[in-house]
Amino acid sequence: MRHRTPLVLALGSLLIAVTPGVAHAHADVVRTSPRNGSVVATAPKAVTVTFSEPVELDSARLIGADGVELASSAVMSGAVLTLTAKAPLSGQRTITAAWTVTSDDGHQVNGSSAFMVGQPPEIGPPVALTTTPAIPATLRGQRIGRMSVTFASKASSGQIQWTSAQLPEPLNWQVTGRKGRATASGVLPFAGPWTMQATLVSANGAVMVVRSRVEVAR
C-alpha cells in the first residue's frame, strides 16, 4: 500500500490545482476601474465593473466619502457595468461603487468596490484589533482611506469582507499569507463602524472565520 501515498498526493494536488480554475456558473467580478483599493491622482468621470459573464442589472449606485449616494446613471452593456456621475467627482476623497446583479442562472450577487482620490493620508501606527476567535491582529490606518489588516497567522490565503450600515454590499480584500503573517489591504471609504469578516485558509486546508468591528474616523 506504500504506492498509494504518491498517488493520493498526485490526485490531491491535481484537484487543488484545478479547483480555482473551474468555470463558475454565477457571475464574478473580473475587474473594476479604478481598481478596488487603489489610490488615483484625479477623479474619473465613470466607474466600470466587468463581470465574468453578461448579467442583468438590478441596482447600482455611486457613494461619496460621506456615505451619501451621488447622482449617477448606470448602464449595463453585456458584462460591463458603467456608472457615470452626473456631477464632477473631483471633490470626493473616496468613491464607492455598489451593485446588485442577477446572473444567467438566476442567482443574485451584490458587491462593491472603493478607491481613493488624491494623496493617501499618512498611515498611522498599527492598532490592535479584538477578534473572535481571538487571533493577534492589527489595523493600520484608522482614518478614511487606505488601510491594512495583519493577522499573526499561518494562513496562506483568504478574504476579508467589509460591510457597514451605508454599504451592505460587501467590500472584499484579498488576504495573502507569508512567514506567519496574513495581510490584506484596501480602502475603507466612509467614517463610522464597519463589520469585518475574514475567512482564513491555511496551506493544509484548515479554515477559520474571524470577525471584528472597526471604527473609522473622518
Binding site: I135, P136, T138, F151, A152, S153, K154, A155, S156, G177, R178, K179, G180, R181, L200, S202, A203, N204, A206, M208
Partner: peptide, 22 residues
C-alpha cells in the same frame, strides 16, 4: 495552523513553512 508564530507580534516572526510545504 492559525496560531501566531511567536507571542510577540511585532516583527518577522514565523517560518514560512506552511507555504513552502504546500
Amino acid at each position: 495552523p492559525f496560531a501566531p508564530p511567536a507571542p510577540d507580534v511585532a516583527v518577522d516572526g514565523g517560518s514560512g513553512l506552511p507555504v513552502a510545504a504546500s
